[in-house]
């Protein structure tokens, strides 16, 4: 049993799956910066409509990646990375549902008058 625990611990150490305080602090600081950028842009009306939407979506996506990498440790773990594969599948469905809805309903709105 002791052997098993040791093996497990050293194994876990190799994988760096627990992260470190440093990586959490870096992730936290990047997240704060990525939150402040769109807030400043929106609240001060600094850019045009399209540019503002682009800034909001890019900073949100980057922050999502920061959460995944620095906090949720999606890069770690044994091969094959089933969690990553599952996540990619989920994002695929997410994009299909969201982009597909916008596309189809955008066309439907002709004659719907909302």
């Amino acid at each position: 049993m002791a052997d098993h625990n040791n093996a497990h611990n050293s194994h876990g150490g190799e994988r760096h799956e627990h992260g470190s305080l440093k990586s959490y602090i870096i992730g936290y600081i990047i997240s704060i910066v990525l939150t402040i950028i769109p807030l400043v842009v929106v609240l001060n009306d600094m850019m045009g409509r399209t540019a503002t939407i682009a800034v909001i979506m890019v900073t949100a996506t980057l922050q999502f990646l920061v959460q995944l990498i620095f906090f949720m440790h999606v890069r770690d773990g044994e091969q094959p990375r089933w969690n990553l594969i599952t996540l990619i599948f989920g994002v695929l469905i997410l994009l299909t549902v969201v982009v597909g809805s916008i596309w189809i309903m955008g066309n439907n709105s002709i004659g719907m008058k909302m």
Partner: peptide, 12 residues
Amino acid sequence: LTSSFTSGVAVL
């Protein structure tokens, strides 16, 4: 955002 960070520190 801060609570997400502190929950990570708890795991550490």
